[in-house]
Design a protein around this nucleic acid. Structure first.
Lengths: 221, 221
DNA sequence: TCCGCAAACTTGTGATCACAGGATAGGAAA
DNA sequence: TTTCCTATCCTGTGATCACAAGTTTGCGGA
């Protein structure tokens, strides 16, 4: 949501020395990439112990994640990663479609060959994660594919919203991985790249929409 | 962003007795409805003094608002309401269009007569605010019109995102009011209501899009 | 063996404090 | 009068603590 730096490639210890920010970034990445199971509880003192900070920065990091919908705080303060209802999953999927179709459409006129090359190499990394059965790695590289494309849209607020949706879906996304079993590799991603090369906007919108929607559909039981 | 209760009609002292939440809600309303000028600085101790709490809850409220993009924290921690660039305003307007068109479209099949009545009475309130030259009241009732409609969409995550955009535009929205000078009253709102009555989805989408876009266009210099 | 209650513990909340860094004002020198 | 430097103030950060509320554990009675 904010303009803070991306927690993606994350050099081991970022230059930003703020304690709560470090905790926030670490937790955000863990949640977004499905490293934390849905329903898992987090305690202030536990976080503090794990990241060697006091309760204050831990609380601020948690509260920020709650504000972004990444964590839900149950009655009386306990905070845990949320278990999404089917309606919520469908709504978030629709939101992804809405935002990401627009982002890709805006990125299209600015997509140079260098970008397409980069997307293709990310695709290789995704295939590797699939073959290694690395769920967290798969989710991370998959989102990196999307983020790389959308960065070209020059629409930071829109991208931030898309990332917030990813964050909310993170814990659930992990469950998705268990069901796709090697079928999914960069099928839709190849369509996206083809549409980018061809400058085919309707095709791009369609490809992004299905890539975003189709996976989540498996989750709705 | 979160599922917290609406700060709108706000009974004077809410049942939720949490200090930081009270401060958060109060500040959120003030920002969203344009009660704070763009660029205005907020201090932790100042907030604490104003709402009679210590620095801790004040800091949490501010930090949450920063996370939602309602406030920008400049280099080295100072927090102030942001002055939006033209590109940012255009992007946020596009985001409003994207989200609110979808929300209105989802609300359409569920719009009963009671809803339309309520929207019309809100429209009267808007006209009254315009005649009273009450900028904050105008913004508040205008957003209430939109929120009342979108609540019918049964899409809480999407509505929360729209509200986040409103929040980011809040301080800027105030500046808009100075330029519309009694011209604007519920012109587009009447189109929205007409489309709702007729069950005309394309017309509704168009009316919402222009209502959302046209005002903001005045801000881009 | 099972149920219920109480004690011990764990948890989030908010206040206070020490500290470091940045902003500001005021005086001295040119 | 203007400019620069320094001392003071103000601000955000993070640690620690007291407290209240919720959770768990374990013991006693039926």
């Amino acid at each position: 949501m904010s303009i803070s730096a991306r927690p993606t490639a994350s050099s081991p210890s970022d230059t930003t020395a703020s304690a709560h920010d470090r905790v926030y970034r670490a937790l955000r990445a863990r949640i977004m990439y499905g490293d934390i199971a849905p329903g898992e509880a987090l305690t202030l003192r536990g976080i503090g112990r794990e990241y060697e900070v006091s309760m204050t920065p831990a609380r601020e990091a948690l509260r920020r994640l709650v504000a972004e919908g990444a964590l839900s705080l149950s009655s009386s303060g306990r905070v845990a990663t949320p278990e999404l209802s089917n309606e919520r999953i469908e709504e978030l999927a629709a939101l992804r479609a809405l935002l990401e179709v627009e982002l890709s459409s805006r990125a299209l006129p600015r997509a140079h060959m260098a970008l397409i090359d980069r997307l293709q190499s990310i695709n290789l990394a995704i295939a590797e994660m699939v073959s290694k059965r690395d769920a967290v790695g798969y989710i991370r590289t998959n989102l990196e594919f999307h983020r790389t494309l959308y960065l070209r849209a020059q629409a930071p607020a829109m991208l931030a919203m898309a990332e917030t949706v990813w964050l909310q879906l993170g814990p659930t996304m992990r469950a998705l991985y268990g069901r796709l079993r090697r079928t999914d590799p960069p099928q839709n991603h190849r369509l996206i790249i083809a549409a980018l090369k061809a400058g085919d906007e309707p095709g791009l919108r369609l490809a992004v929409r299905s890539d975003v929607t189709q996976g989540l559909r498996l989750l709705v039981v």
